[in-house]
Design a protein around this nucleic acid. Structure first.
Length: 469
RNA sequence: GACCCCAUCGUCUAGCCUGGUUUAGGACGUCACCCUUUCAAGGUGAAAACACGGGUUCAAAUCCCGUUGGGGUCGCCA
C-alpha cells in the first residue's frame, strides 16, 4: 500500500512554525516511504478564510522546499459532496435533524457550566418526532454518536488512546445554512483523497475520536493517525503571537535559511541517536514516526542560530551574494556597482565564516559595497585615536612597496613594516581594520585588503587621516 | 471543571518498549583555558538532569500506582 498524506491548514493566517513542522513531518514521511503528499486548504469557514492567507501558506511551503503532489484541494469546493454524505447518513438513520436554536444551545452551555458539567449537546432531538419541528427554524444535521462503550485509536505517536463514548456528543455535520462543518469535511476529504496517514498536531487528538465515528458510520476504512506534540514558546507556554508564533515569512526575513529551519524543526520533537546536523537528504532516509517524541518542545532561537550559522558557512558563495544583494536593495536602495559587486563576490568566502543570519551577513557585506568615505561605528572610531592614526601614517609607503597585491604579499609587507617601526601587529591591525572597514570586527585584515585593492585601501586610510580626530 | 496527553542537564534530546553493559551520553547555550591581527571557526576542560512519593524486583531513568507540574480538547472555528 502506497502512502498518501496531507497537510491541511486553514487559511486564516500565515503558515506558523508549528504548521511548518507538521508539513515537514508529513513531507518527510511521504518521501521516506514513497507516496503522495497532498495539500488541502480547509477553507470551509467562509468568514475567516482569505486569499492572502492561502497565498502566504503556499509561499511559505515553497520557500521551505516542501513541495506537494497534485493539485491543491480547496475544501469549500467540495461542500456539495460533504452535504451528500450528511444526507446519506440522515437517510440511513445514522444522523438526525436538530432544531435547537443557538440561544437554546447557549443556555445549555451555561447550565452545564454552572453545574460544573462538561458542555455536551444533550441529544434532545435525537429521537424526537420531526413532526414536532418548530416553524421557521432551519435545522442542523447531527450525527448519532454511540452512547455506551468506548472509542479507541491506535496512534502511531501516542500509542493506544481510548475515551468513553459518553464523552462524545452528537456533533453537527451540516449547519443550518447547509454548509458542512470541519468534522464532516475532514473525514469525507480524507476518505475521498484516499489518505492513508493523518499526521497532524496533538491538538487534534480528541477530534480523532469524533472523526473515527464518522468513518465508522460510513463504513469507511480508518486511516492511520499520528498526533505530533505541539511546539511551545521559550517560556513553556503555548506558542502565542507574543512569543515565537511567527509566520515562516518572518524567519525568512530574519535571515534564516530554509535548510537550517528544516533541520531545526526536524530535531524539535524527533531524534535519531546523537545526530544533530541532518541535511534533508539524510532526513528523508532516516525519518519515521517511531522517532517522534511524545512531549511538547520549546522553541529555542539559540539553537536555530547555531544551525543557521552552520548552513550559511557551507552555502555557495554565489547563492549568498544573490541573497545579500536582495537585502541590500530591499529598501529601494540602488544596487551596488560592478566594482562593489566584484568585491562582494571575492569577499563572500570570508564574510560567511562569521555570519549567523543573512541579516548579519548583509550588514557585514556593507564594508565591501558602501561608497567612500565609509562610516565608522562607535567601536571603530574609538580604535582610531591619535596614536593609532600616527601608526597608520607610515603605512602608505609600505603598501606602495608591495609588489603583487595578494593576501600573502600584503601580510608579509605589513609584518615587515610593523617590525621596522617596532610596533606589534595587533596595534597596527586593529586601527587598520577600523580605517578600512569602519568596524572593529571583520574577516582577516589581509584578506580584506586583498579584496579591496591597493587603491581603495590607500584611499580609505587617507580618508581617516583627512577627517582628523 | 470533565476528558485526554506529557514529564531525563537552562533548552533540544539519547537511553526507557526488550530492567543490570550508566561515574545517565550528545548537541545548543554558559564559563575557563589554548590558538590568534579583531570576530568567527577550531581545540581542551568545567558546571549542569532521571519532578516527587510509593510499590514490583536481587537490581528501576527504564515496569506499575498515586501526587505534583505542564499541555491539549470541550463552537452551527478549523
Amino acid at each position: 500500500m502506497s502512502v498518501v498524506t496531507r497537510f491541511a491548514p486553514s487559511p486564516t493566517g500565515f503558515l506558523h512554525i508549528g504548521g511548518a513542522r507538521t508539513a515537514l513531518f508529513n513531507w518527510l514521511f511521504t518521501r521516506h516511504h514513497g507516496g503522495a503528499f497532498c495539500l488541502r486548504i480547509e477553507d470551509t469557514d467562509r468568514a475567516r478564510s482569505t486569499e492572502e492567507a492561502t497565498a502566504a501558506i503556499l509561499d511559505g511551503l515553497e520557500w521551505l522546499g516542501l513541495g506537494w503532489d497534485g493539485e491543491v484541494v480547496h475544501q469549500f469546493s467540495r461542500a456539495p459532496r460533504h452535504a451528500e454524505v450528511a444526507h446519506q447518513l440522515l437517510a440511513e438513520g445514522k444522523a438526525y435533524r436538530c432544531y435547537c436554536t443557538p440561544e437554546e444551545l447557549t443556555a445549555m452551555r451555561e447550565a452545564a457550566r454552572t453545574e460544573g458539567r462538561p458542555m455536551r449537546y444533550d441529544g434532545r432531538w435525537r429521537d424526537r418526532d420531526p413532526a414536532e419541528a418548530p416553524m421557521g427554524v432551519d435545522p442542523v444535521i447531527r450525527i448519532k454518536m454511540p452512547r455506551e462503550g468506548e472509542t479507541a485509536i491506535r496512534d502511531l505517536v501516542q500509542g493506544e488512546v481510548r475515551v468513553p463514548n459518553d464523552q462524545l456528543d452528537d456533533m453537527i455535520l451540516l449547519r443550518a445554512d447547509g454548509t458542512p462543518t470541519y468534522m464532516l469535511s475532514v473525514v469525507v476529504d480524507d476518505h475521498d483523497m484516499a489518505i492513508t496517514h493523518v499526521i497532524r498536531g496533538d491538538d487534534h487528538l480528541t477530534n480523532a475520536f469524533r472523526q473515527l465515528q464518522v468513518f465508522a458510520a460510513m463504513d469507511w476504512p480508518i486511516p492511520e493517525f499520528a498526533h505530533i506534540p505541539l511546539i511551545h514558546g521559550p517560556d513553556g507556554a503555548k506558542l502565542s503571537k507574543r512569543h515565537g508564533a511567527l509566520g515562516v515569512d518572518s524567519y525568512r526575513e530574519m535571515g534564516y535559511l530554509p535548510e537550517a529551519l528544516r533541520n531545526y524543526l526536524l530535531r524539535l520533537g524527533w531524534g535519531h541517536g546523537d545526530d544533530e546536523i541532518i541535511d534533508t537528504e539524510q532526513a528523508v532516509r532516516w525519518f519515521d514516526l517511531d522517532g517522534v517524541g511524545k512531549s511538547a518542545a520549546r522553541f529555542d532561537f539559540a539553537k536555530l542560530d547555531n544551525l543557521n550559522k552552520h548552513y550559511v558557512q557551507r552555502a555557495e558563495d554565489e547563492r549568498l551574494v544573490a541573497l545579500v544583494l536582495q537585502r541590500l536593495t530591499a529598501d529601494g536602495a540602488a544596487a551596488p556597482g560592478e566594482t562593489a559587486l566584484a568585491r562582494l563576490r571575492a569577499g563572500m568566502a570570508g564574510l560567511k565564516q562569521r555570519a549567523t543570519t543573512l541579516s548579519d551577513l548583509t550588514e557585514s557585506a556593507r564594508m565591501y559595497t558602501a561608497p567612500r568615505p565609509i562610516e565608522c561605528d562607535e567601536k571603530a572610531a574609538k580604535l582610531l585615536d591619535d596614536a593609532a592614526r600616527s601608526r597608520l601614517a607610515g603605512l602608505a609607503t609600505a603598501l606602495e612597496k608591495i609588489k603583487s597585491w595578494d593576501e600573502d604579499a600584503i601580510e608579509a609587507g605589513i609584518r615587515t613594516h610593523a617590525e621596522a617601526a617596532d610596533i606589534k601587529l595587533g596595534q597596527l591591525a586593529q586601527p587598520l581594520r577600523a580605517a578600512l572597514t569602519g568596524r572593529a570586527v571583520s574577516p582577516g585584515i589581509f584578506e580584506v585588503m586583498a579584496v579591496l585593492g591597493r587603491e581603495e585601501c590607500l584611499a580609505r586610510i587617507n580618508d581617516v587621516q583627512a577627517a582628523g580626530p
